[in-house]
Design a protein around this nucleic acid. Structure first.
Lengths: 147, 147
DNA sequence: TATTGTTATACTCTATAACTATA
DNA sequence: TATAGTTATAGAGTATAACAATA
């Protein structure tokens, strides 16, 4: 007999697998890898960034970012540009191709959400969202504890 | 203005990050890697398996399983044994150490669920679960579509 | 002195293809 | 002939440490 709490978390994980599958489809179709897609996504959120900043945002070593940017640069998704004030640093920016990839991913994500929850009545969905938002405080505490 | 459906899916993803963080903590503390932990988990669910079966369950090449089992064997989490009827095959089983690792992971998962949803009233949680289970049909259809 | 990014080196995960032993 | 697992080879992601250029 599994506790209600565990059942709830398992259902949440089930949905996250769906998102992961959609992400895998995107990567397969675009020829991008997981880590490179992650970097593109972060770059879309933050705008042009130094490799140090990207290393921090991705929780990865600076050396690793060099490799990821090398690959994304070769595929035409990002460009390295000189930092305007610090000559040690480089700014990594999305190209038009990179921007399009991020936008496709965003649209695919929204499309998935619409199809998954589309048939759930608004009141039900609002209550669902409220329950999740109620856990926000606990969430923050647990995340800090796990770092 | 983001749609309610997208907000809901984003909240779900937020929780899955918590589970991922807990998994990362487990891996850090146990010295296991993600793919090796995944193999241990599957082995815990299915019992002793051939490497072919593991390759299928993990959606990974047979060659890859060879490497994962090599590592887990060296760390004492699994053992290779001769298959009782097919001399081409080997059966991979959990050792006592491996079993303990799987159990710790299971307990950590349940503990996380209890702490995350512990303060949510039962009626709220039941409604939450019902909403998620309502999407089961759509979930299956979408998963099939993405394969 | 400290920081940014790269070169050097090494390990894990991943794949395909060829090979061995067995079915 | 087909299947189970391994060896051979290759590429991506990851890390730490040493180094060059710049702050």
């Amino acid at each position: 007999m599994t506790a209600l709490q565990t059942q709830a978390l398992d259902q949440v994980l089930r949905l996250s697998q769906l998102v992961a599958a959609d992400l895998a489809r995107f990567e397969r179709e675009s020829g991008l890898t997981g880590p490179r897609t992650h970097l593109l996504w972060v770059l879309g959120l933050t705008g042009p960034s130094t490799q140090q900043a990207l290393a921090g945002a991705l929780s990865v070593s600076p050396r690793n970012v060099t490799g990821l940017v090398d690959g994304l640069s070769a595929s035409g998704h990002v460009v390295r540009e000189p930092h305007p004030t610090d000559r040690r640093a480089t700014l990594v920016s999305l190209t038009e191709t990179g921007r399009r990839a991020v936008q496709e991913l965003q649209e695919s994500h929204e499309d998935l959400a619409a199809r998954l929850f589309g048939s759930v009545p608004t009141e039900r969905l609002t209550a669902f969202l409220a329950t999740l938002e109620e856990t926000a405080g606990t969430f923050e505490r647990l995340m800090a504890e796990l770092s």
